[in-house]
Design a protein around this nucleic acid. Structure first.
Lengths: 244, 244
DNA sequence: CGTAATTTTGACTCCGCTCAATTGGCGTGG
DNA sequence: CCACGCCAATTGAGCGGAGTCAAAATTACG
């Protein structure tokens, strides 16, 4: 239990002073609860670009809150194919796939130098029994992950490639906005191949669509740099006018 | 809160005697806990074929354990398309999509006359704070839903139509087996269109693949009746021999 | 600063979709 | 009981969106 990772840092957390607390913590915790909570979120851990926070098959022990940086999660099949199942940025919680079994079912890899808060799961469960708002919050976080996944199913199951990519860009845009970054201009941390894996298409298709969106003045792309020029245009792509 | 459904039945539950308790309850509950639990699972509700347990947009109040019958869950987009996100049978828990917000994000429709145990969520949270095994179990159930969804993403994102259908059949087969039914012979409760929606393909494609699997002696299909003749053959379809 | 990785773009192919007609089941009412 | 009508399922023909293969351009990184 609670293995000591070589990359762990003893840095004491102070959730109350963390700029992300409104993203990953419940609102309206009293001071006492907050202090107890800071005892759970005891350590931080840096993960270098290309390194993994945990691998599929690793023994599950903790959830993690992303402090800064960017991660992808993916699962690998017997025959070597892998599927990107999500991208995670500051304030988001990862590792919940491991709760159901003994082990993690996906791998979490940093796409840039990142840092997470380590939250030993047994501590979370202990505290959840004592602090009702925390319990409620934790349940909501898990539920939202389920809802998010269902949204991805909708994407993969019933949208065409251009709709998926448009939805993906708008989703990223919204998430950057919530974190205080520009909603219209950002740098993609993932490759075309990773986007393609997430969206169920080939990297060439992603590239071609980027180029087409560029031609159509919807966005500007130069490599990893993206600027959204026509939000409404992108939205219109997702809900295509149909003979109704 | 806890609205009185017209279809509710006052029937007192007895989880300890329910044949499904090993599917939806934690193992190793002491008798006292079991009795407290039976107080949570206080009512049952019948849902007729074609009727919905809840609709997308309904206020969330409870989770439900399927007692018997068969459900599909689906989400609907602005423009009227909908995406089947799952099929649920006896012993499985539904409604967790609603925890994150005030309202349900998907609709749960019965594909045959069904019955569920109603579990008011506030009661679940209360009890989870008192009975540790219950808390743990509930967390596992939620996590497994997340893992299941990631499996569907893998299906939709990186498999070809025939692989998806093979995986779908094998998954159904396993679930029937666990419930004491035949793993090799069963009746599909859903239409080709619903299968297609779930697997991200058109109903015609589903039908054609069924016919092809039949020709290739992998299965026998006649309408909704399916018999699996070559499990290994189906498995082989999923992990196709690649130049590795 | 050179080598590898990523991205772009083109040409061609094919899987799964669309459109359409037919068949088969099943419930309802004459 | 059978006929009708409705819905689900099957099957065919043709098309198109996204995949595959390949090469060139650009960038990132040790």
């Amino acid at each position: 239990m609670t293995p000591i990772h070589s990359a762990s840092h003893g840095a004491r957390s102070s959730c109350s002073q963390c700029s992300l607390h409104e993203l990953c913590l419940p609102v309206g915790l009293d001071e006492a609860s907050m202090r107890t909570l800071e005892d759970v979120v005891s350590t931080r851990r840096k993960v270098h670009r290309g390194a993994s926070l945990f691998h599929s098959g690793d023994v599950f022990s903790s959830l993690y809150a992303v402090r800064y940086g960017f991660f992808k999660s993916f699962i690998t099949t017997r025959d070597g194919r892998d599927q990107v199942t999500g991208f995670y940025m500051a304030g988001e919680i990862v590792g919940m796939d491991g709760i159901g079994g003994e082990r993690h079912t996906c791998t979490l890899m940093a796409l840039e130098d990142s840092e997470v808060c380590v939250m030993p799961f047994s501590r979370i469960e202990d505290l959840s029994r004592e602090i009702e708002p925390l319990q409620r919050h934790f349940h909501k976080v898990m539920s939202r992950e389920i809802v998010r996944d269902q949204g991805v199913m909708l994407l993969l199951g019933s949208m065409r490639a251009e709709e998926r990519l448009a939805a993906f860009l708008l989703n990223l845009s919204q998430r950057f906005l919530r974190r205080g970054f520009s909603a219209s201009e950002f740098v993609l941390r993932m490759t075309r191949e990773e986007i393609g894996s997430y969206l169920g298409m080939k990297l060439e298709t992603v590239s071609r669509l980027f180029s087409r969106f560029h031609e159509e003045q919807l966005i500007e792309v130069r490599q990893k740099h993206v600027r959204i020029r026509d939000v409404e245009g992108l939205r219109a792509l997702i809900a295509p006018p149909r003979a109704a």
